[in-house]
Nucleic acid binder design. Sequence first.
DNA 1: TGACCATATAATCAAACTCTTATATAATTC
DNA 2: GAATTATATAAGAGTTTGATTATATGGTCA
Lengths: 114, 114
Amino acid sequence: MEKTKMDIGEAADLFKIMGDRSRLSMVAMMNRRECCVCDFTECFEMSQPAVSQHLKKLRGMGLIKERREGYWTYLSLNEESPFYDMIPELIAAIPGIEDHISSMTASCSRGDCC
Amino acid sequence: MEKTKMDIGEAADLFKIMGDRSRLSMVAMMNRRECCVCDFTECFEMSQPAVSQHLKKLRGMGLIKERREGYWTYLSLNEESPFYDMIPELIAAIPGIEDHISSMTASCSRGDCC
DNA sequence: TGACCATATAATCAAACTCTTATATAATTC
DNA sequence: GAATTATATAAGAGTTTGATTATATGGTCA
């Protein structure tokens, strides 16, 4: 079955969302595995509200879903999203990104976070 | 040989550039074939300076090259760009984009422009 | 040379973006 | 219930974006 067509404007919105270093990194990390909000604040050395506002955008597009566990909220890519199938392809198109994500998350206290 | 690694920030910049409906369409059109500036103004029903400024951004990233012929300037993707290989992959990740581009350019007077 | 044409640049403005600090919310543990 | 913790929201400042109108540039053709 053919994939559902996507309006160019919608696709552009997705690119725009990913057109930010922090958000692109977040998406790439979640493309590997579920992440905790605190993983982001730590890996990016970014304030908690800043992370939260990036997440709000990702959420606003329906790109991510969340799961609560104890104190933490775990985030992952939302398989219900029309963009879900595109994301691994977009990430894979970036040469060497896996190494970048690995070294970025290596410095994270929860080293195995992503 | 492995492709040159790309910084996440650079990749994000590319996404950002493509995170605009007009520019994404332009890139998708040029991914098919060389285009004239006037193709864009016509296909997008957009003013000439607006198109020109989008082109300036694409040029600023080194994403496109140009060729002069008579009155017209022809634009195409620059194979010297480190992003060159990524573009077809990014475009291909958008479901149904070819149909969208086709119908967008069909209304263009120079119907075969892309 | 001079008129014409495609395209680029400048100046401007409103809207959107991204960060910061301060504060609110809501689940958890004692 | 009270203290604690992770996370979200609000408000505000500074920057960037993308359009518009007006003008400049530079090749082409007669």
